[in-house]
Simulated scan of single mutants.
Amino acid sequence: MENTVRKNLNKTKIECYEFLSKLKTEIPLPILQGSLPVIIFSRKESDVDAILGGLLAGDQLIKYSFYLLIPYAIVLLVKWGIRLSFDSSREKFEYLHLLISEVGTGFLTISRTGLGATIGCLYLVHTTQIITASPREILGAYIGVISLLHVNCMVVFLKDRAMKSINHKSPPNPYRLDKNLR
C-alpha cells in the first residue's frame, strides 16, 4: 500500500513539473503575439481600440474554436481509453488524431493572443495614462490572465501527452499468419 502511494506521489510530482514547465512557453508567446503590439503601437485610447479590434478574434470565431475542442477532447479520451489492436485501425486513428490535434493549436493561438493583449492593456494601465481602469476591472483582468494561462498550460500539457502516446510505436505483432491462411 505504502509503495503504491509513493509511486502515485512520484507520478504526480512528475506531472506537476511537466505542467509547470509549460509556463516557459505559455508566458513569452502571449507577450510576443498580443502584448508587444498593444504596447508598441498605442499612443492614445483610439489606438488601443484599433489594435485590440485587429488582434482579437470575433465572438463567433472564439465560440467556433471552443466548439472544435469537443472533438479534440473526444479523440483524446478514445486514444487513452481504447486500445486499438489492428495496425490499420491504429494508423487511421492516429491520422485522425493528428488532424484533430491541430484544432487545439488554433484555439491556443486565439487564446494566447487574447491573453497577451490583456497583459499589454494591464501594462498600459499601470505605466501610462493612455487607458485607465477601476481597481475592480484590474482585478478582473488579473484573474482572467491567471485563468487563461492555466487553461493554455492544460491544453498544451494534454496535447503533448497525447502526441507522446501517438508517436510511441507499439511493438510489432510477433505472430504472423502463413500467407496461405490470409
Rank of each mutant, 00 (worst) to 15 (best):
T132S: 09
S88D: 10
E45H: 03
H97W: 13
Y142S: 09
L99F: 13
S170V: 09
Q33A: 14
R176V: 13
K24T: 10
D87W: 05
S65D: 06
T128H: 13
E137R: 06
K22C: 15
I40R: 02
F19P: 09
Y72N: 02
L124F: 02
Y72F: 05
L115H: 05
G34P: 02
L20Q: 08
F41C: 00
D160V: 07
E18M: 03
I62Q: 01
Y17V: 15
T113D: 05
V145C: 00
L29F: 10
D178Q: 07
I143N: 11
L115E: 05
G81V: 08
L76N: 13
G81W: 03
L158H: 11
I70D: 08
S88N: 07
N180G: 13
L84K: 11
G54M: 11
G58W: 06
E137K: 08
V38Y: 10
F66E: 03
D87K: 15
K13C: 12
L96M: 13
L68R: 12
L177W: 08
M163P: 06
A162T: 06
S65Q: 03
L29H: 02
A141T: 01
E102V: 10
R43D: 04
E26K: 04
S111K: 11
R43P: 00
H97K: 00
F93R: 06
W80E: 11
P28Y: 02
I146G: 03
N10A: 12
T109C: 08
H126A: 10
C16Y: 14
W80R: 15
V5H: 13
K44A: 13
K164Q: 09
F41E: 06
K159W: 14
L124H: 05
T12C: 07
I119N: 05
I27E: 00
T127C: 04
V151I: 15
Y95S: 05
P172M: 11
F41P: 00
T25Y: 14
Q129N: 12
Y95T: 10
R83N: 09
L77I: 14
T113A: 01
S147R: 10
P172I: 08
K24G: 06
T109K: 09
L76P: 03
H97M: 01
I51G: 00
T105C: 07
T113N: 09
G144H: 11
E102A: 14
A50W: 15
P171W: 06
L20K: 12
K11P: 03
A50R: 15
L32S: 01
E91D: 12
C16T: 13
L96I: 07
K11R: 10
L76Q: 15
R6V: 05
P28C: 04
C121D: 02
D87C: 06
L20A: 12
P28N: 01
V155F: 09
G140P: 04
L84T: 13
G54P: 05
K24P: 01
I166K: 01
N180P: 01
A162H: 03
D49C: 06
K169R: 14
N10K: 14
P71M: 00
G106H: 15
Q129Y: 11
I70W: 12
N10G: 08
F66R: 08
R43Q: 14
L55P: 00
E15W: 04
